[in-house]
Amino acid sequence: MNNAKKLEVQIKDMSMRNPVMTASGTFGYGYDYEDFLSLENLGAIVVKATTLNKREGNPYPRMAETPSGMLNAVGLQNNGVEYFCNKIYPKLKDKKTNVIVNVSGSTIEEYVEVAKYINTLPNIPAIELNISCPNVKEGGMAFGTDPSMTQRVVSQVRKAYNKTLIVKLSPNVTNIVEIAQAAENAGADSLSLINTLLGMAVDSEKKTALLSTITGGLSGPAIKPVALRCVWQVAKQTKLPIIGIGGIMNTQDAIEFILVGATAVQVGTANFIHPSISEEIAKGIAEYVDRHNLNHITDIRGII
């Protein structure tokens, strides 16, 4: 097989030249990174969460460094879906990669409204439904921690959106398989997991929490073992293509997710530290495929 084709993967109707995507909230709108890499070398980029109306997000401080990771409490700051469609989309529509919009909301109606707007944009092949943000008071993670809520929001969005629908799952649940199956039954085309783990950090000298919101979402290599476990569990129990996310810093990490069942991966927090890392991981996967004499990257998918 042609070498370039060995990395091509499919998420429902969306074809990607390789399995490497960038995670929402860690890659801006893609063009922020063009000084450091070529977007066309990535399978897809997921742009930051978009809500119906403009959101200011949470007060500063929103970030704390933690061992092998960081906490954030951004709170879905964005200019709203109309701004996205009118001001951001024109700058993205001709990029030579798949551009996926992360859709968030406080109510089912809001998710549906945003999905309807994005459905009208011809060059957006997929949305990622964010039912797992731990940093907003209403909605967000509430939809991703209760199977009946997941079922309701995904089925309503499914009716309003006819392209590839990815649902992003939260690890902050007792049984992630239950949520994954609810999303699958409600018509999701793919599942991406995991979003951040709910955590907190404390300053013992100042006797305060480090985040303005007290709690926030933990990301980075610290969460990779949890993410691998979640992907492995969900891949065994659903038929949907899985996108593995959580602490991917290098090629080996990405391969680990594929071995436990992921069709593609998202690189997140690592983008903050090594801005060209997603492109390097895509190259690294190609080298891995050669070194292990694979016919195709999916040969190793889910073999654990």
Binding site: K48, P61, R62, M63, M70, N72, V74, Q77, T269, N271
Partner: peptide
């Protein structure tokens, strides 16, 4: 001097409250 994760405008962690919002 605000703490920040990326420095290049994508993490949205270093916001400051201005007359025009964060």
């Amino acid at each position: 001097e605000h703490s920040m994760a990326c420095g290049i405008g994508v993490c949205l962690c270093c916001v400051v409250d201005t007359q025009q919002g964060n």
